[in-house]
Amino acid sequence: MDQNPWLTDAVARVADSPPAIVRLFAAAGRHTRPEEDGRTRLLLALPPETVPYWVDDLYRHGDAGEKLAILTALPALPLGAEAVPLLHDALRTNDTRLITAALGPYARHLDQHAWRHAVLKCVFIGVPLEKIDDLDRRADRELAAMVSALRAEREAAGRRLPDDARRLLDRIP
């Protein structure tokens, strides 16, 4: 099934010896195609009990591509809420790729305060809100109040809120 011998070999090596993932995870970006999800496959090859440790280690030592791969893989990994600190880290950045990836399905572990601020940050820096998982179910009146306040500031400055944020306000009862 595998078209990519490098990835097949790398997955086997990680299963055999988890620390091998350090160098293989870094190199996967140049040895695999995006659609192969090479980095996710490497994470899934880890013994499940070691996943929390390696996810943290690889994120902390990762470049932007590795961090992005971890955030994207989180929902598929055998994890509870252990990786929430990584979401906080990503949401502190101004890298729109990381912010977007941090608001996928794994963000169900984020508390509501942090989640609202993350959504507001998306509005603020122009990340499309359609990328946020579970937005309509989770959006509440407090978020609406925050977005409305931003709209007031923008309008006072003669600027508009992005259309997707205006539509979100319309949807929150």
Binding site: R30, N94, T96, R97, F124, I125, G126, V127, P128, R159
Partner: peptide, 26 residues
């Protein structure tokens, strides 16, 4: 190095439009 990528960065899509840098740190 075997790692150089000088292809166009054009596929940044919404990142490009949505960047807080291009938007003046809005």
């Amino acid at each position: 190095s075997g790692r150089l990528d000088v292809s166009e960065t054009g596929d940044t899509g919404p990142l490009f439009e949505g960047s807080s840098i291009l938007r003046g740190g809005s």
